[in-house]
Protein backbone atom coordinates (compact mmCIF):
# COMPACT_ATOMS: atom_id res chain seq x y z
CA UNK A 1 0.00 0.00 0.00
CA UNK A 2 1.31 3.42 -0.93
CA UNK A 3 2.33 5.46 2.07
CA UNK A 4 2.22 8.88 0.52
CA UNK A 5 -1.26 9.61 -0.67
CA UNK A 6 -1.67 12.08 -3.44
CA UNK A 7 -4.31 14.63 -2.77
CA UNK A 8 -7.46 14.01 -4.78
CA UNK A 9 -8.71 16.84 -6.95
CA UNK A 10 -12.31 17.71 -6.13
CA UNK A 11 -14.38 19.55 -8.71
CA UNK A 12 -17.88 20.97 -8.48
CA UNK A 13 -19.66 21.28 -11.84
CA UNK A 14 -22.97 23.00 -12.23
CA UNK A 15 -25.51 24.77 -14.34
CA UNK A 16 -26.93 28.11 -13.29
CA UNK A 17 -30.15 30.02 -13.87
CA UNK A 18 -32.78 28.72 -16.28
CA UNK A 19 -30.37 27.01 -18.66
CA UNK A 20 -31.68 23.51 -19.34
CA UNK A 21 -28.81 22.17 -21.44
CA UNK A 22 -27.16 19.59 -19.22
CA UNK A 23 -25.58 17.26 -21.77
CA UNK A 24 -22.26 19.07 -21.98
CA UNK A 25 -21.81 19.45 -18.25
CA UNK A 26 -22.46 15.73 -17.75
CA UNK A 27 -19.93 14.91 -20.45
CA UNK A 28 -17.38 17.10 -18.70
CA UNK A 29 -18.19 15.50 -15.34
CA UNK A 30 -17.53 12.03 -16.65
CA UNK A 31 -14.35 13.10 -18.43
CA UNK A 32 -13.00 14.52 -15.21
CA UNK A 33 -14.04 11.40 -13.31
CA UNK A 34 -12.17 9.27 -15.84
CA UNK A 35 -9.15 11.47 -15.27
CA UNK A 36 -9.23 10.46 -11.60
CA UNK A 37 -11.00 13.47 -10.12
CA UNK A 38 -13.90 13.44 -7.70
CA UNK A 39 -16.71 15.33 -9.35
CA UNK A 40 -19.77 16.69 -7.61
CA UNK A 41 -22.58 17.53 -9.99
CA UNK A 42 -24.99 20.05 -8.53
CA UNK A 43 -27.61 19.88 -11.26
CA UNK A 44 -29.55 22.56 -13.10
CA UNK A 45 -31.24 25.77 -11.95
CA UNK A 46 -28.64 26.69 -9.34
CA UNK A 47 -28.10 30.13 -7.86
CA UNK A 48 -24.71 31.82 -7.39
CA UNK A 49 -25.20 31.73 -3.61
CA UNK A 50 -26.09 28.04 -3.62
CA UNK A 51 -23.14 27.17 -5.84
CA UNK A 52 -20.65 28.93 -3.59
CA UNK A 53 -22.14 27.45 -0.42
CA UNK A 54 -21.87 23.96 -1.90
CA UNK A 55 -18.28 24.68 -2.93
CA UNK A 56 -17.48 25.66 0.66
CA UNK A 57 -19.16 22.61 2.22
CA UNK A 58 -17.51 20.26 -0.24
CA UNK A 59 -14.10 21.98 0.02
CA UNK A 60 -13.58 21.72 -3.74
CA UNK A 61 -10.48 22.81 -5.63
CA UNK A 62 -12.38 23.81 -8.74
CA UNK A 63 -15.79 25.25 -9.64
CA UNK A 64 -16.87 24.61 -13.24
CA UNK A 65 -19.90 26.39 -14.68
CA UNK A 66 -21.56 25.42 -17.93
CA UNK A 67 -23.34 28.09 -19.97
CA UNK A 68 -25.46 27.47 -23.06
CA UNK A 69 -28.29 29.94 -22.77
CA UNK A 70 -26.65 33.30 -23.18
CA UNK A 71 -26.68 34.08 -19.46
CA UNK A 72 -22.91 33.90 -19.01
CA UNK A 73 -22.39 37.64 -18.70
CA UNK A 74 -25.20 37.94 -16.16
CA UNK A 75 -24.24 35.14 -13.80
CA UNK A 76 -20.46 35.26 -13.91
CA UNK A 77 -20.13 38.54 -11.94
CA UNK A 78 -22.61 37.22 -9.39
CA UNK A 79 -20.69 33.99 -8.85
CA UNK A 80 -17.39 35.86 -8.63
CA UNK A 81 -18.92 38.29 -6.11
CA UNK A 82 -20.17 35.42 -3.94
CA UNK A 83 -16.72 33.84 -4.05
CA UNK A 84 -15.09 37.11 -3.02
CA UNK A 85 -17.60 37.64 -0.24
CA UNK A 86 -16.75 34.22 1.14
CA UNK A 87 -12.99 34.66 0.61
CA UNK A 88 -12.82 31.68 -1.72
CA UNK A 89 -9.56 32.84 -3.24
CA UNK A 90 -7.99 29.39 -3.47
CA UNK A 91 -10.63 27.90 -5.75
CA UNK A 92 -10.12 27.74 -9.51
CA UNK A 93 -13.11 28.97 -11.54
CA UNK A 94 -13.57 27.60 -15.06
CA UNK A 95 -16.45 27.76 -17.50
CA UNK A 96 -17.52 26.15 -20.73
CA UNK A 97 -20.39 25.94 -23.15
CA UNK A 98 -21.69 27.82 -26.13
CA UNK A 99 -21.28 31.58 -26.40
CA UNK A 100 -19.67 34.12 -28.73
CA UNK A 101 -15.86 34.05 -28.89
CA UNK A 102 -15.83 37.81 -28.34
CA UNK A 103 -17.17 37.27 -24.84
CA UNK A 104 -14.19 35.24 -23.68
CA UNK A 105 -11.95 38.19 -22.74
CA UNK A 106 -14.88 39.79 -20.90
CA UNK A 107 -15.51 36.58 -18.95
CA UNK A 108 -11.84 36.37 -18.03
CA UNK A 109 -11.83 39.99 -16.92
CA UNK A 110 -14.83 39.26 -14.76
CA UNK A 111 -12.82 36.65 -12.92
CA UNK A 112 -13.10 33.31 -14.72
CA UNK A 113 -9.68 31.70 -14.76
CA UNK A 114 -10.21 29.80 -17.99
CA UNK A 115 -12.97 29.40 -20.55
CA UNK A 116 -13.47 26.23 -22.62
CA UNK A 117 -15.74 26.47 -25.62
CA UNK A 118 -17.55 23.67 -27.45
CA UNK A 119 -15.09 21.27 -29.00
CA UNK A 120 -12.47 21.66 -26.31
CA UNK A 121 -10.34 18.54 -26.00
CA UNK A 122 -10.54 16.52 -22.82
CA UNK A 123 -6.81 16.57 -22.32
CA UNK A 124 -6.76 20.33 -22.51
CA UNK A 125 -9.34 20.67 -19.76
CA UNK A 126 -7.80 18.02 -17.52
CA UNK A 127 -4.28 19.34 -17.93
CA UNK A 128 -5.31 22.90 -17.30
CA UNK A 129 -6.98 21.93 -14.02
CA UNK A 130 -4.09 19.76 -12.88
CA UNK A 131 -1.55 22.48 -13.57
CA UNK A 132 -3.41 25.50 -12.26
CA UNK A 133 -4.80 24.48 -8.88
CA UNK A 134 -4.60 27.33 -6.43
CA UNK A 135 -3.67 25.23 -3.43
Amino acid sequence: MAETKKKKIKVLVTKVGLDGHDRGVKVVASLLKEAGMEVIYLGMFQTPGGIVKAAIDEDVDVIGVSYLSGEHLVFTPKIVAEMKKNLLDDVLLVAGGTFPVEDIPTLEEMGIDKVFRAGSLTDTIVQYIQQNLKR
Binding site: K33, G36, E38, I40, Y41, L42
Partner: peptide
Protein backbone atom coordinates in the same frame (compact mmCIF):
# COMPACT_ATOMS: atom_id res chain seq x y z
CA UNK B 1 -11.74 1.22 -9.51
CA UNK B 2 -10.09 2.10 -12.82
CA UNK B 3 -9.49 5.83 -12.67
CA UNK B 4 -9.89 6.43 -8.94
CA UNK B 5 -12.27 9.24 -9.84
CA UNK B 6 -15.90 9.47 -8.80
CA UNK B 7 -19.17 11.00 -9.85
CA UNK B 8 -20.90 12.31 -6.75
CA UNK B 9 -24.47 12.97 -7.79
CA UNK B 10 -26.58 12.61 -4.65
CA UNK B 11 -26.52 16.31 -3.96
CA UNK B 12 -28.73 16.99 -6.99
Amino acid sequence: PFSGGAFLGDRI
